[in-house]
Design a protein around this nucleic acid. Structure first.
Length: 243
DNA sequence: AACGACTGCAACCGCCGTTCG
DNA sequence: GCGAACGGCGGTTGCAGTCGT
């Protein structure tokens, strides 16, 4: 899937990163920060160039990153923002917490571009119907899946967006009153919706209190949420059911 | 089972803007 | 003002895995 590791003529290592290199880089950045990427590999004992280290950190090692399946909401957001911003992947990535510009760009080229093309979506389609599924009634392999989720038109949606990777645990807050949790980076935008900060924070407990089964236990949805409850302005909320 | 075509994605490359001496 | 150093960004590439024949 990735380039095989090799050394260029100046002795700089290229290609796939090993687990050991990842650990070295993560340890160094978490301990000392990354004030100078150019000097970092030398100081961290890595045979990589600074750019490579920076890329690896931003796209893979940085905490709070999400990897893997995109939700329908995320895909809609990517398409909408791409219509507005063009190939400004870094700006689009800012709108999707946990996603990197590289990952969004890849996903766009491998999935969404084809969908958009085959469905012949126009800018007006995407902009004129905020909150409405712009691909309603169209069928591609990507969105047939989504449609099946929303089979009951007008009904509340079940949205479970994956949280951070177990490889990079982060503080996670549980709202006992509503049986879901919010990751810290989206709490602000969610609070703007309909709840005061105190209303939420007082009832949260930390992720550590879950215990070790968190990442292996299946999620059970006990409550449903509308689009508006989940998506507020530019922030995404990540819901985790209460155990 | 074998093989070629296709896909997905991590990583590389080169350009551009900013900062600093 | 100028040039070097650096960070950031978007486009592109390489290749393992998957799919189709």
């Amino acid at each position: 899937m990735v380039r095989a590791p090799f050394y260029d003529k100046s002795g700089v290592k290229k290609g796939a990163w090993s687990r050991e290199e990842d650990e070295r880089l993560r340890d160094y950045v978490q301990r000392y920060g990354h004030s100078n990427w150019r000097k970092l590999p030398k100081l961290a004992g890595l045979a990589r160039c600074g750019k490579s280290c920076r890329l690896r950190w931003l796209n893979y090692l940085k905490p709070n990153l999400k990897h893997g399946d995109y939700t329908q909401k995320e895909e809609e957001m990517i398409m909408k923002f791409h219509q507005e911003l063009g190939n400004k992947w870094s700006l689009i990535a800012e709108k999707l917490p946990g996603r990197t510009d590289n990952e969004i760009k890849n996903h766009w080229h491998s999935h969404l571009k084809k969908c958009l093309k085959s469905n012949d979506i126009t800018t007006s389609d995407l902009n004129s119907k905020p909150g409405h599924d712009p691909l309603d009634g169209k069928t591609t392999h990507q969105f047939e899946k989504s449609e099946s989720l929303d089979a009951n038109e007008g009904a509340d949606l079940y949205h479970i967006l994956e949280s951070s990777s177990p490889m990079s645990p982060q503080p996670c807050y549980i709202n006992e009153a509503h049986n879901y949790s919010l990751t810290s980076n989206v709490a602000e935008s969610t609070m703007n919706c309909n709840t005061s900060k105190e209303d939420i924070v007082d009832q949260w407990v930390t992720f550590e209190e879950f215990g070790s089964g968190f990442w292996t236990e299946p999620f059970i949805v006990e409550h449903t949420y509308t689009d508006n409850e989940i998506l507020c302005d530019e922030g995404l909320a990540f819901f985790v059911p209460h155990f």
